[in-house]
């Protein structure tokens, strides 16, 4: 049994300390009648890699915006262990969202710059973040000189330069070609192994979610809600071996079945 149902995963979680972040019955209603998200509860623990998987309109991006504090829940609570401050969060959007007028290094500097730190003082951190995504040679380039995959790497470097407690990723690789996406999937796991960050990742790809995450939260649409949580218990590091293993295929089948449940509802 490689797949565990929610109950078992929660049982394992109970042994851990208090969650880093918890959503408690969070709902979001737009314009008074459009229910984007209904009663979502989720505990995010230190070191988790959680994928929110579901069809469009299932509220996964809404959930991410709520966690990011970009909108506020209509009801329910979002709690950060020990409160939240500006450096706690790194975000990667579907587009690289870089400032075209600034160099790669200046883009990565942004989170620090907004906290009043000079470029010179942060040079070491910036170089380190760029080295982590393999772009140390491109610090002085402008975004337009980079390929789509490289721009996304810059975006990731910017998200992790403050060493945030949690990184949110909103379908970051959806617009990339398959080869680049696989490469970035591998790189993301390598990165996570190195710095041990906690990630909440939104995707509509079953394969991507199984390859990357330790927990998959399957969501359904109309109204957007969580219907399953499946744990992927395959150990990290995961590489090409895992991607072609029977184990991976079995996980994908199970996640697919859960997703079909979500769509079929």
């Amino acid at each position: 049994m490689t797949l565990q149902e929610t109950g078992v995963a929660a049982g394992a979680a109970a042994a851990q300390p208090a969650p880093l972040l918890s959503l408690d019955g969070v709902s979001k209603v737009f314009n008074g009648d459009l229910v984007a998200l209904k009663g979502m509860s989720l505990d995010v623990f230190q070191g988790d890699f959680i994928s929110l998987l579901g069809p469009s309109g299932c509220g996964k991006s809404t959930a991410l915006r709520l966690i990011a504090g970009l909108s506020h829940p209509t009801s329910g609570r979002i709690n950060w262990a020990g409160g939240q401050d500006a450096g706690d969060l790194g975000v990667v959007f579907q587009e690289p969202t870089l400032m075209p007028w600034a160099t790669v290094a200046q883009n990565v500097w942004l989170p620090w710059r907004l906290r009043g730190k000079s470029f010179a003082a942060m040079k070491g951190r910036i170089d380190e973040a760029l080295a982590l995504v393999g772009l140390e040679k491109f610090a002085a380039s402008y975004p337009r000189e980079l390929s789509g995959g490289m721009k996304m790497r810059v975006s990731i470097a910017r998200a992790l330069v403050t060493n945030p407690r949690l990184i949110l990723m909103d379908e970051p690789f959806a617009a990339l070609d398959e080869i680049t996406r696989h490469k970035l999937n591998n790189d993301l796991l390598a990165l996570r192994a190195k710095i041990g960050c906690t990630i909440v990742f939104v995707t509509h790809s079953v394969f991507e979610s199984v390859f990357l995450s330790s927990r998959i939260v399957v969501m359904a649409a109309r109204p957007g809600r969580v219907i399953h949580e499946v744990a992927v218990v395959a150990p990290y590091p995961r590489g090409e071996d895992f991607r072609t293993s029977a184990d991976y295929a079995a996980h994908c089948r199970a996640a697919s079945a859960a997703l079909h449940d979500a769509i079929g509802d």
Partner: peptide, 27 residues
Amino acid sequence: ADHNLRDLFSIYGATRWQRLRYLQLPA
């Protein structure tokens, strides 16, 4: 100015002045 960049500035707690100086004026 790009909407996602504006969101990013909000997430990082940018002040009104920082938003103007680093995002809106260059854009």
